[in-house]
């Protein structure tokens, strides 16, 4: 799994690409934490549209990114989240901590 990053002002956007499972999780967490630590953003956005598969291993990845942003008094937001990812994150109650926008919400805002 690869993660591209984009920094604009105080917002860091991450684009993880590929399958987010236990095999990929440790290196993804490392990349996310390194990007946050070097950019020190006020807001971190993870664009999930490139995640072709995710299981419960993704929950801890999101929670770790959330914790890192909280330590900086910043905010984490997930956008363009595929429906199955959203269901998995919702089952674990992640949306109580992190704002989650599905593909549909993003689409509706534009039209």
């Amino acid at each position: 799994m690869k993660t591209q990053t984009e920094l604009s002002g105080s917002r860091l956007t991450l684009f993880p690409q590929g399958e987010l499972d236990h095999h990929a999780a440790a290196s993804v967490v490392g990349e996310i934490e390194r990007s946050i630590d070097s950019a020190l953003p006020r807001e971190c956005v993870i664009d999930m549209s490139g995640v072709t598969f995710m299981d419960s291993s993704g929950i801890a990845v999101v929670l770790k990114a959330h914790r890192r942003m909280s330590e900086l008094s910043g905010k984490l937001r997930l956008v363009r989240v595929p429906e199955r990812c959203r269901r998995i994150l919702a089952a674990a109650g992640v949306e109580r901590l992190v704002e989650i926008e599905t593909r549909e919400t993003v689409h509706n805002e534009r039209t």
């Binding site: 999780a25 419960s56 291993s57 801890a60 929670l63 998995i88 089952a91 674990a92």
Partner: peptide, 17 residues
């Protein structure tokens, strides 16, 4: 749900999923 022995890498949601 939420039961795990896996520490903070795991969330205890596998069987529930």
């Amino acid at each position: 749900p939420m039961y795990t022995t896996g520490g903070d890498d795991r969330s205890g949601m596998g069987f529930t999923i």
